[in-house]
Design a binder for these strands. Structure first.
Lengths: 216, 216
DNA sequence: CTTGACATAGAACATATGGTCGAGTATAAT
DNA sequence: ATTATACTCGACCATATGTTCTATGTCAAG
């Protein structure tokens, strides 16, 4: 299931990330080709298709530069401990049901600063997302809320996680229960019913460790 | 030199910002046109030229979607790093339906430390409560959540507040709407129905400014 | 060796997209 | 009225860019 990502595709991913960091917008197929030393657009197309299948990127068909990275790569998830007290958590973008995690290029390398006291011991690999839309209401998470996640691909039973459903192509925040080859995704709201999906259809994006709601 | 930015150009700027927020990459000339109700690419081109002259955006010539905002226009949740003080908000105790909040009586001098950046300008009269029980589920607030309130007796329409219902002898967190001699208390969850109570039956304990949920 | 799955290149194509030109319409100043 | 300056439109062009098809190479399994 978790096949190793081929070297070339890894390179494609990296070069997209770099390009976005530098330019503020994604590269074209040809520019990717140049960057990784490939001089046929079809090959890049081919790679992009693979990456999309894996859910690592998402694209809009026939639109130029319409590539988005869905999985935050671990390199950028670095928490600097500026003070002993304040953590600067990288703000990676927005999350909404029906759309992959939208990791944007923020020119200033935006962070959200949060007091360390609000976290547990483990403060590695944290990143922040802002929730768009009311689709997470059943997880008691509202439009505009900020969630802090720890980047990991596996969570313990019952923990809330950002889950990317590969086939359904949507992201949700749910409590995760492994049940053999199935995974039960349980809304935090006890009145809502869980959904069951195949284990290889889910891709854990991170464990939710903190939810912050700022009101007017 | 600091001429007022024409309405239309302002709109262009805003729509680029929105588009980037939503898609992760900048819009095309035509997409901008659609967004602001202009159906000629030349006009958008014209606007973009003006915006570039003013230094508000930068572009790469002849590249699709190669627009960058030089000035972050919208406030976003970008955090002011200037003052990374840590606020010590007094922790006053627990809130649960059926029990009043006694703001005066400090049960000790416990505080909850929170980074100032998470708040707005006004940081006076803040206090923290921990929610007990699931009675606030309809306000999207769960058992164990921490709410930060600003102590005030009156809030603006639509703001979330801790409300003490004198006759019913219970406290709830609801959005408050003044409707003449009545007050409508609207749950944050849009699927729940509001309750209407007499204005002199409600006693605002404080305005909710922040909700924090710490997960395992 | 043959087969087939995967990887690569190149060309050809369709269209998405930016640029420009000319003309038309305001609106205000002369 | 005349001029000037800013704005708006529509059409056209050049090319930037995504897609697809075919051909070829590689390599491991049968």
């Amino acid at each position: 299931m978790a096949k190793e990502l081929p070297e070339r595709q890894r390179k494609v991913l990296d070069c997209i990330q770099e390009y976005v960091d530098e330019h503020g917008f994604p590269p074209t197929v040809r520019e990717i080709g140049d960057a990784i030393g490939v001089n046929s657009t079809s090959l890049v197309s081919y790679y992009l298709k693979r990456l999309e299948e894996r859910g690592l990127i998402s694209r809009e068909p026939s639109m130029s530069r319409a590539i988005q990275l869905t999985t935050p790569t671990t390199e950028e998830i670095s928490v600097e401990v500026s003070d002993d007290d304040v953590l600067a958590v990288p703000f990676l973008g927005y999350i909404a049901a029906g759309a992959p995690i939208n990791v944007e290029a923020f020119p200033g390398n935006e962070t959200i600063e949060i007091n360390r006291a609000l976290f547990g011991r483990d403060i590695s690999d944290l990143f922040a997302l802002k929730v768009q839309g009311t689709s997470m209401i059943d997880a008691l998470i509202n439009d505009g809320d900020t969630v802090i996640l720890k980047h990991q691909e596996r969570v313990e039973n019952g923990q809330m996680a950002a889950v990317w459903l590969i086939n359904e192509e949507e992201t949700t925040l749910k409590k995760v229960y492994y049940e053999g080859k199935q995974v039960r995704l349980q809304p935090a709201n006890p009145t809502m019913n869980p959904i069951h999906v195949a284990a290889d259809d889910v891709q854990i994006q991170g464990k939710v460790v903190l939810v912050i709601r700022k009101l007017a």
